[in-house]
Design a protein around this nucleic acid. Structure first.
Lengths: 202, 202, 202, 202
DNA sequence: AATGAATGAGTATTCATTCAT
DNA sequence: TATGAATGAATACTCATTCAT
């Protein structure tokens, strides 16, 4: 919508990727946007609000993109869909995703505490844990303790969250292959023994 | 050996944990060490050298600690040993490990490039990849493409690397249970179908 | 043109004169300019660039001022003109000249070497040496070895360069008289014996 | 006499020559002397006293060396002797002389004023002025106003004072030739017309 | 005599923010 | 809307000096 705000956001993402969050000063962002510093503080009363805008924008995009996940009939289908759609979203804008990851890991409040909830915090893991527990109840997945389900969920989430920077650091990164490998990996990690997974990874 | 240097290192680790790498200024570190800023620059000519000291010290400790991994007869034993010993090392000094993770993710050179090789860089993954390929050759593990082995290695490494901050953010963190769960998870992810792993994780 | 840059330059000159180059900190300059330190680094990205600006500005002014020297018909006229115009230029802005002399004598690069070519370096002496050699060829001046011409040139240049600080340390300094005395002195030093210089110095 | 003090002085001179006065910190001096900083402050309660020692030592040496100047019968002989002996002294220890010149030009008191009297101050010029006025009274030299005599004295002194750094910046510097050229130059500048100085400087 | 450790004031520079135009 | 100027706090680092050993 607001063209200037978006272009500032793009420049900020570019700057964060290039210099890291801590070095992404308003001056550097303005330089990359080809505007003066004042323009930024005009559109974003404070730097915090610019950062917030970048994060929120990604979450809004993400929520929309990911709203169609939960239409699978089986838990393993759901897990596959979860991984596929998350990675697909990352693929649409890896720079934005990677920048927000940088922000989340580094942005702090005045008293030094992380400003955004960690990537491994419960609310984020809930959907995954629910998939796992559903699969277990249905007999599709192996046994999991509550803690085991959480550990798996964290592993999956952590792997997904690492994808964007992985993708950007390797120009020949094969996204489809990577997705297939991860799905295989986590299907193996969840399935019951003796009951092979017959799916042909796309 | 050198008491002051170690106490400065401890204070630096504490500061990085509390405020994050970017906010861990010499002033803040000195305050936590209960000394004046000058003492730090006396012992470490530049902040970079202090950071380097913190990183190197951990690597030295780690190299010693991990030197006894490779004594298993089977690939799955080796994988288990790899995970166990890495986590055990993290357990000995999670704050130091977490601080170094912060450093590696954030420390940059003047031109904005990451100063330390990323956690997912090949050299770090090599031992893991070799274990996986060995298990596959021996018929212990399932089939892996080269890329598949690398993806698994990255997943394992990423999960291990996330442990320290996980451990510190949760005071009731059950280390043994977490270790067992991860071993189970990755044994499942590697084993052949139909040939269950019968080991009861300790 | 740029008012603030010029006022910063003026304050810097004043500070260098008052405290010396080494003590002329950005803080002191800002204090004398009645502005905050930030203004200086806003207009001059680094202190070196401020210093460079001060030096270059003087050289630009000087080049313009001195461009009309070389219109005399005789070597002794030229020498007189050289001295007169150099001193006249110093008179226009002795503080600036004296400050730049301080800078040239003291400004060093990181490795400790003088940053600006010395006042006695060849390029600066060339015009003077040419005048002397011309006068000798024409039979106006006495005999000079190459080295003798250079020594004389250094003496003349050194005397001229010392004028600004001389002038400023003595409030009753008589500029015209000083100029006349120097011209007499160096005419005597160059002229052939027995052929008096009959000019009445202005 | 005191070996350590002298070696510290030598190191200080070396440091001042290499880095300039402003950068000649106690640390740098200690490094060049191969001792710890503490040794310096042990022997010299403050840096100022070290500097004073360096200056005083040179003046003591100089006073002794120059005490035999005034034994010439004529003013022009005296002038020649003055120049010769001053240059000869500089030749004995050009580094010390150059370092002290650096000190005199840069050392300041707390309030920013030059600590040592300038090189062009009256007391230093008095002997030279007396020689000139004597030569004029005796009819050996040309007419000089009081101010003219002072200007000449300043020129001579300035030229002599510049010799040390000149000498050190040029490894092929020919001291004897330089001395001869200066003597010729200033004899010409003082002599009456028509009464040539017939000496052929070697 | 000599040393290493420690201190605190001072340095240039970076930067988010404010403001007048 | 947009800009350039200005501010003041914070940063890493330097250094003369003090002190215990």
């Amino acid at each position: 919508m607001n063209k200037t705000k978006r272009s500032i956001m793009e420049a900020a993402i570019e700057t964060i990727m290039e210099l890291g969050f801590a070095q992404a000063s308003i001056g550097q962002i303005a330089k990359r946007a080809g505007i003066s510093k004042g323009v930024i503080t005009y559109h974003f009363p404070s730097k915090d609000e610019l950062i917030d805008f970048i994060v929120t924008e990604l979450y809004t995009d993400g929520a929309e993109f990911l709203s169609q996940i939960m239409q699978e009939q089986t838990a393993s289908g759901m897990l596959r869909s979860y991984i596929e759609s998350n990675l697909a979203f990352i693929r649409t804008n890896p720079r934005h995703v990677a920048a927000v990851a940088e922000i989340i890991l580094n942005m702090r409040t005045e008293d030094g505490k992380l400003r955004y909830v960690g990537l491994n915090d419960d609310p984020i893991l809930v959907p995954l844990i629910e998939i796992i527990q559903w699969g277990q109840r249905e007999g599709e997945f192996r046994e999991f303790t509550d803690f085991g389900a959480k550990v798996l969920a964290m592993t999956i989430r952590g792997t997904i969250d690492g994808t964007a920077s992985l993708m950007m650091s390797d120009p020949r990164f094969d996204f489809d292959l990577y997705t297939a490998e991860l799905i295989t990996l986590f299907e193996r990690a969840t399935c019951k023994m003796g009951e092979g997974n017959h799916k042909e990874d796309k």
